[in-house]
Amino acid sequence: MKYKIVCIFTFVLLLVGCTGERFQGINTHQSFVASMNILEPSLTFYDRQGELIANWAFEKAYTGAVLIQQDRVLLYGHQLTEADIYELSSGKKLATIETGIGTTNAYYAVDEQMIFLTNSRSNSLMRYNLYGEPDGELALRNYPMSMIAHEGLLYVVNYKDTVLSVVSIEDLSLQAEWPIEKSSHGFAIVEDTLLIGGHGEGMHSNETVKVLDLASGKELSTMTMPLMPIGFAQKEDELAVISHGSNMLYVTEPTGKPKWQLEVGANPFAVAYFNSHIIVAGYDDNKIYFIQHGHIDETISVDKGPFQLLVRGDS
């Protein structure tokens, strides 16, 4: 009898061993905000009350993540040669994409169901299908990073360059190149304008968000949001911008008219809407903040270096 138990136990252990790394699964109907922490790489999931749902601690030095559809997350690292796709409901790894070192950002174009990765080594944009299979590549300018898709076009900021590249999602062709400031980062599309944030060049700290014409790339106006506005989040009637240099959260109407502002966190890089809350991640203080109507409702300590926020709303 004892022998049987030992045999079964060993078999189960073997099975578990064969399945590879597996994290705690997240219910498909569970809405969450997830903090991508990069100093001690982990992804921590919280529900709308700020309760911890799951904590995925990684061995690999992931520096970013992006949600793909409802139940998948893609994790990449600037110093890693591959990106991994995990299933949220099972916590299992679904696929691995050979990216090569230098992945700076990942973007999921919802409408076209395409995954885009930018690479600072090859200075290129790479397209993958939902299964992580390569589907084309386009050489861009120096250090492509920030991406946003709109009506069949992908707007890519070349971080160490003064050029914004406009790429056709369908045939991966370069449509236009618009002049922008160096070290630009962070995008939002409001009606027919493109908002671009940035750090500023050299020792100069950028204090404004540039408003470009979505069709021509012409700079229409600027919104003053010091210092170094780089994080954007938006919902139908509101725009949230986080400036990490001054720890300021600016909330405006879509027209740019200020609604309120709040000093929050220490060196916050990410902002996101999650149901009725605005979530801000403080990189230096390792906290995420639940903010509503200009007040901090809740502060949650997370692992070291919260750098990105992923949000899955109610399905």
Binding site: I38, T63, S120, Y143, Y159, K160, S183, H185, H199, G200, G202, M203, H204, S205, L227, M228, H244, G245, S246, N267, F269, Y283, G305, F307
Partner: peptide, 13 residues
């Protein structure tokens, strides 16, 4: 007090 001088942008290159 310039955050640029203080390596505030450090996760970025």
């Amino acid at each position: 007090r310039n955050p640029r001088e203080l390596s505030a942008c450090v996760p970025f290159d």
